[in-house]
Write a protein that binds this DNA or RNA. Structure first.
Length: 259
DNA sequence: AAGTGAGACAACCGCAGCTGC
DNA sequence: CGCAGCTGCGGTTGTCTCACT
């Protein structure tokens, strides 16, 4: 199979998305659904490849994305699932509504892996201490190693069971918020029942997604970290219609293509 | 105040698998 | 059945921010 030329060779834009591009993409998908991702950027007037558009939508712009810190439960779910199925991020994401595989992957690499390593280290050292204690308690047998004692240590099982993960709370720069309920409370069930993870041709107009009904006042996307970082304005965080405010504040409302 | 390194997260790359012809 | 086109997935890289010196 001949690989399609990459974005750069086609003269397409790479790197971070601008708010204008986001709005164009949102508006287009709102109006038409994504349909064919490859054709989308051309039809929407974006100088991006379809892959980039798909990624941007699925990982960031999709309205059912839940942003903010991961809850303890979510982190535990990730850890447990990772134990059983490994690096199958999309499968793990499927078990965490509103979370993307990319986000989970990032969290794993930045927080959970380290935490697990730390807890394993502390557990190992604790195990080591217990093993030493067990060794001293256990009947002396020159042929048995310490590990063997730990694996079936009737005389110190209670101590071993006390070795637990004492993971500390991770702190990230974004406050924990449940955007899904705060920002999308006005979206009814028919919208959420749309399966955006599938490749169906999403037509938001056929849903009750507020923006699809031309109700701009209700059109709300969650504030992105980009906006928080760039603006640092609490007004932004509080109540507003985030995306429209971004453009209006910037005084840089893009000329949206006529679809 | 400037430089630097680490951490966090967004985005890209390339391969695999699926589907239609 | 084989090929081409497309999407999904996981690994990796790039970029930005912030803390520290």
């Amino acid at each position: 199979m001949v690989r399609a030329p990459c974005c750069e060779k086609m003269g397409l834009k790479k790197g971070p998305w601008s708010p204008q591009e986001d709005l164009i993409l949102i508006s287009y998908i709102q109006e038409h659904g994504h349909g064919n991702w490859r054709a989308l950027p051309k039809q929407a007037g974006l100088l991006r490849c379809g892959k980039s558009c798909r990624l941007r939508w699925t990982n960031y712009l999709r309205p059912d994305i839940k942003r903010g810190n991961f809850s303890k439960e979510e982190e535990e779910t990730i850890i447990k699932l990772h134990e059983t199925i490994g690096n199958r991020w999309s499968a793990i994401a499927a078990r965490l509504p509103g979370r993307t595989d990319n986000e989970i992957k990032n969290v794993w690499h930045t927080h959970l892996k380290k935490r697990l390593k730390n807890s394993k280290t502390s557990e190992d050292s604790k195990r080591h201490t217990i093993i030493q204690k067990c060794d001293s308690k256990a009947p002396q047998n020159p042929n048995s190693s310490s590990e063997q004692i730990v694996d079936s240590p009737q005389h110190c099982s209670s101590e071993m069971s006390s070795v637990t993960d004492s993971s500390e709370k991770t702190v990230t720069k974004h406050e924990e918020m449940d955007y899904s309920s705060e920002y999308f409370s006005q979206i009814d069930e028919t919208f959420w029942s749309n399966d955006f993870s599938t490749d169906d041709n999403i037509n938001l107009q056929s849903t009750n997604f507020p923006a699809a009904k031309n109700d701009e006042a209700q059109f709300k996307f969650p504030p992105s970290p980009v906006a928080n970082d760039a603006g640092g304005n609490s007004e932004v965080d509080d109540s507003m219609d985030f995306w429209y405010n971004v453009f209006i504040r910037a005084g840089d409302m893009p000329d949206l293509p006529l679809f």
